[in-house]
């Protein structure tokens, strides 16, 4: 752990008025229950950058699984719960692109029949950011002061890449991690085949897709695959494990927290 003490990161955030804003952690349900260490890693990174944090209690799920399966009434209820929980937050930051896409783009659609609710949804959506996006675009951070002595390849998650347009930000952050070698895999933006309930309803197609992804990961020669969305990473990790492959799967926050392994 060399980071955090040098105070010489190549960042401009210290001069950014945004830095004074408080961040509300929006912890994706999968991270909450299965990968809490990813949330802890986010806390470490924000602490190191001196960003004040809060964690609004009572968080559950943004409603995306229901939404994608067509259960919009249930998704709407979850959305209302989320909006009420985060309405007073300043900036809302989440370690998952697809959840942010849900809040930012799909919540307003869910309330298209109620202008007042739609306005509330939009207001919350505007303040909701994905982790790497928030660091780079809002805080002006490019170097989190981390070290990671590994060859890493990056998977562009679908909603993160296509719905939020985030592909540069995670790469900026990874490229500034000391001793990290970033290797691009073929078709990094191709879907990993997770797709929520799709992976349960159509497992053979889902597996064929994740195998394609894994083929490209292995061909890259990297020994770590990293991304900004634990749902895709869980899918990749689950299949790698079944295949007995040793490539490690980590969330970008884990790398940026500098937890050198």
């Amino acid at each position: 752990m060399s980071a955090g003490s040098s105070g010489t990161f190549n960042n401009s955030f210290l001069f950014n008025p945004m830095a004074k804003r408080k961040v509300s952690l929006f912890i994706q349900c999968l991270v909450d229950s299965m990968f809490p260490h990813v949330g802890e890693a986010m806390v470490t990174v924000f602490d190191r950058l001196g960003i004040p944090l809060e964690y609004p209690p009572g968080q559950t799920c943004c409603g995306q699984p229901s939404f994608n399966a067509g259960y919009q009434k249930e998704a709407r209820k979850a959305a209302l719960h989320f909006i009420e929980l985060f309405e007073d937050s300043e900036d809302i930051v989440c370690p998952s692109g697809s959840c942010v896409s849900m809040v930012r783009h799909d919540y307003p659609e869910l309330f298209k029949d109620s202008p007042k609710m739609q306005e509330r949804a939009r207001a919350v959506g505007k303040r909701c950011y994905e982790f790497s996006e928030y660091l780079v675009d809002q805080l002006g951070v490019s170097d989190c002061g981390a070290t990671f002595r590994r060859k890493v390849t990056y998977h562009d998650s679908c909603h993160l890449y296509r719905n939020l347009g985030i592909d540069r930000q995670p790469r900026v952050l990874l490229n500034n991690v000391k001793e990290l070698e970033l290797i691009e895999m073929k078709d990094s933006t191709q879907c990993c085949g997770f797709g929520g309930t799709f992976s349960i309803n159509y497992p053979e197609i889902s597996t064929a897709l994740v195998d394609e992804k894994i083929k490209n990961i292995l061909a890259s020669g990297a020994d770590v695959v990293c991304g900004c969305d634990m749902s895709c990473l869980m899918n990749i990790k689950g299949r790698l494990s079944r295949l007995g492959e040793t490539v490690e799967v980590v969330h970008i926050a884990e790398i940026l927290a500098g937890s050198e392994k």
């Binding site: 229950s33 990968f35 079944r242």
Partner: peptide, 17 residues
Amino acid sequence: AWTDDRDLPPIAEKSFA
């Protein structure tokens, strides 16, 4: 349907909350 082809990470002992 998941574990036919993939392993599944367990629910952590302590949630982030």
